[in-house]
Nucleic acid binder design. Structure first.
Length: 667
DNA sequence: GCCAATCATCGATAG
DNA sequence: GATGATTGGC
């Protein structure tokens, strides 16, 4: 490895002596590069790679960094343990489950299952079927989760986000307690439990703490501004023994407030670790100055001053562009055409990315791209494993792995005619209370669904011995499930292909537990599954959250407009709007050479499709001098298809024309 | 008492 | 489009 490629700040971070360092690194200042070099440098210095732990925000980021480190110092760097806090916790918790009243075959509930379980408890604590409008299970889980991740009292959180539900505070308190109890009974953990139990393990079990911390000689944490208090606690507890900790982050890029992330973790870091060396990386190597001018403008408009100004030595005559289109359809057509134009000019799709606030914002664009034959992959939004029929198969896998998994049972049992939610829960509870019998169909023999249960029991008992061969296990279960699929879904023809994909997915694993944990913690993206592996040049579509830490030569930020980006909620809530601003900052700073902000004039609002402002853009100081304007209307429209007006807009215009005709202006 | 079909309401980001 | 309350049927 060569240190001469690095600037003095980066070198200081890479070669820092033992101890605690805080690396404050603005967007594009080579944060990832620095971490990669740090790992490589440590390995090069003779540190056992297995004693290095690199915690990142996604597993994708961890993999990428370790690959790059390996390229510098050889494959030994692959032995570095890397992943998210959650994935690190799963492996630690499996080994130490006994200390926490769990057994080591616990399963991980994803959000949908967690919500389903909250739904069961919801009825139990009296939050269902009343004339008073009680919060939905989704909202309830959000509240409980936020309480756990922030440590703030539930009543405060309700007051802040859902004041209309304050009258339910006592019931919600009870729900939180029951929910936790039931998860433990069922030997399942939701995402929050992974952190909570990890803290519990490290805090309350000194022997385990020492054992775990002994193996963490160097701890590196990326994206520290997006950690919550539990993660900060884990960071401190894991590194207490050797005292070698490096955290890296940028407070201006904090975009996970909704998940309980606390910027104070990074802002107050030196109070917690007074001996920490603070290293600042300020020079931006990524973007041209005009892009940074706009990024700086976005930060200036923030209520909380970050006092940060990015500068670059890369100049460009082109300012970022504000592209105005008529509506969403024209936006989609424009983008599809624009990426092709750039491709024709010699810029690969690989160097371009379209970013948006919410997963569904790209729906129309995806249709246009498909029509135009542009290969793309989408990151964020609905995942392959979230499809209902795929979840079905995973429910079968989960009861094989953990027969106490009530939510998996409840899902499976409701496949059968005449067996509804109430009976399903009753049977699942019975299995939980007498796990030695598992599914014993005899008591239900006289029921309509008796034979179906007998068949299921038979399939599952044959499945058990296949646990250490996931591929064979999936094949066995599919033999049972495939015929069922046809009766369960009218559109089963579309769904049946996914079953083959499932077998392929399973073939990558050697045991069932890691298959299930990985799929819960790092689900493969739908378009990765669909993509033609031979196609190497594809366009990236991504939510801004999923684009964090990445960069492209050209970036398009689409769907700018109140109610979309920023989202509905944020338009009224100043704190939420601040997070939207940081989100825009993250999006803008992904661009190396060129940036386009695309803004449809007519967007779907509360009263149908209507002209829409964009608070985020309007408040940027001297915005108009920082951007160039472009009309997104397609001139060479014959190349693609003609722009269609949104039906709502067409209808509104027709009504307007009718109105004008009947009430002609005088004079 | 439970199931299955029907109707109103409301939306995000992710491990 | 999903969630959850409601309603009619067994």
């Amino acid at each position: 490895m060569r240190l001469s490629d690095l600037n003095p700040g980066q070198q200081a971070a890479v070669t820092a002596p033992d101890g605690v360092q805080l690396v404050v690194a603005g967007a594009g200042t080579g944060k990832t590069r620095t971490l990669v070099h740090r790992v490589a440098w440590l390995v090069d210095e003779g540190v056992d790679p297995r004693d290095i732990v690199l915690l990142t925000f996604t597993r994708r980021a961890a993999r990428e960094m370790l690959d790059r480190a390996s390229a510098m110092v050889g494959d030994q760097a692959k032995a570095v343990r890397g992943g998210t806090f959650h994935s690190f916790a799963v492996s630690a918790l499996r080994r130490h489950a006994d200390a926490l009243g769990y057994s080591r075959d616990f399963t991980v509930l994803d959000r949908a299952d967690a919500e389903a379980l909250v739904g069961l408890v919801r009825g139990e604590v009296g939050l269902g079927g009343r004339e008073r409008r009680a919060p939905q299970r989704r909202t309830l889980l959000k509240l409980v989760s936020k309480q756990i991740n922030t440590g703030r009292p539930l009543a405060d959180l309700i007051d802040a986000s859902y004041p209309q539900y304050l009258e339910f505070a006592p019931e919600i308190e009870r729900l939180a307690v029951r929910y936790t109890e039931r998860k433990r009974e069922q030997n399942v953990m939701d995402f929050d439990d992974l952190l909570v139990r990890m803290v519990e393990l490290l805090r309350d079990h000194p022997d385990r703490r020492e054992h775990l911390a002994r193996g963490v000689r160097y701890l590196l944490v990326d994206e520290y501004q997006d950690t919550n208090r539990l993660q900060a606690e884990i960071t401190g507890l894991l590194s207490y023994l050797h005292g070698n900790l490096m955290v890296v982050g940028d407070e201006a890029q904090s975009i996970y407030g909704f998940r309980g992330a606390d910027v104070r973790n990074i802002l107050d870091f030196t109070e917690l670790f007074p001996h920490a060396e603070v290293i600042r990386l300020e020079q931006n190597y990524r973007s041209v100055q005009p892009v940074l001018d706009l990024a700086n403008g976005v930060l200036q408009s923030a209520a909380e001053g970050y006092g940060k100004v990015l500068f670059s030595e890369r100049s460009s005559p082109e300012r970022p562009e504000l592209v105005t289109t008529y509506d969403e359809q024209e936006q989609a057509s424009y983008l599809a055409q624009r990426v092709q134009e750039r491709k024709a000019e010699g810029l690969d799709y690989r160097s371009q990315a379209v970013l948006f606030r919410s997963g569904y914002h790209s729906n129309l664009l995806e249709v246009e791209l498909q029509r135009a034959g542009v290969a793309f992959r989408k990151f964020g939004g609905l995942k392959f494993v979230e499809a209902s029929h795929v979840r079905d198969v995973f429910a079968l896998l989960r009861v094989v792995a953990n027969p106490r998994d009530v939510m998996a049972w409840v899902r499976i049992l409701q496949w059968f005619a005449g067996l509804g939610a109430v009976t399903a829960e009753r049977i699942a509870q019975k299995i939980l209370d007498h796990p030695e019998h598992s599914l014993e169909p005899t008591p239900y023999r006289k029921r309509k669904y008796g034979p179906a249960l007998a068949h299921l029991a038979q399939v599952l008992s044959a499945a058990a011995p296949l646990s250490d061969r996931p591929e064979a296990l999936v094949a066995h279960l599919l033999e049972y499930y495939a015929p069922l699929l046809e009766t369960l879904y009218e559109d089963h023809r579309k769904r049946v292909n996914d079953l083959k994909t499932l077998t392929e997915l399973a073939s990558k694993y050697t045991d069932l537990e890691s298959l299930l944990a990985e799929v819960a913690l790092d689900p493969p993206e739908q378009t990765e599954i669909d993509a033609d592996p031979a196609e190497e040049d594809w366009l990236t579509l991504s939510t801004i959250h999923s684009a964090k830490g990445l960069e492209w030569a050209v970036v398009y930020v689409m769907q700018l407009g109140d109610g979309h980006f920023p989202t509905t909620h944020a338009v009224e809530d100043p704190d939420a709007l601040e997070e939207e601003r940081r989100l825009l900052y993250v999006a803008v700073t992904r661009a190396r050479d060129a940036l386009e902000l695309v803004r449809p004039t007519f967007l779907r609002g509360r009263f149908g499709v209507q002209p829409t402002e964009c608070a985020l853009l309007d408040e940027i100081p001297a915005f108009h001098s920082k951007i160039a304007r472009r009309d997104g209307q397609l001139r060479g429209a014959s190349k693609t298809k003609p722009t269609e007006k949104h039906p709502d807009i067409a209808a509104a215009e027709a009504r307007l024309a009718e109105f004008m005709r009947r009430f002609p202006r005088k004079g």
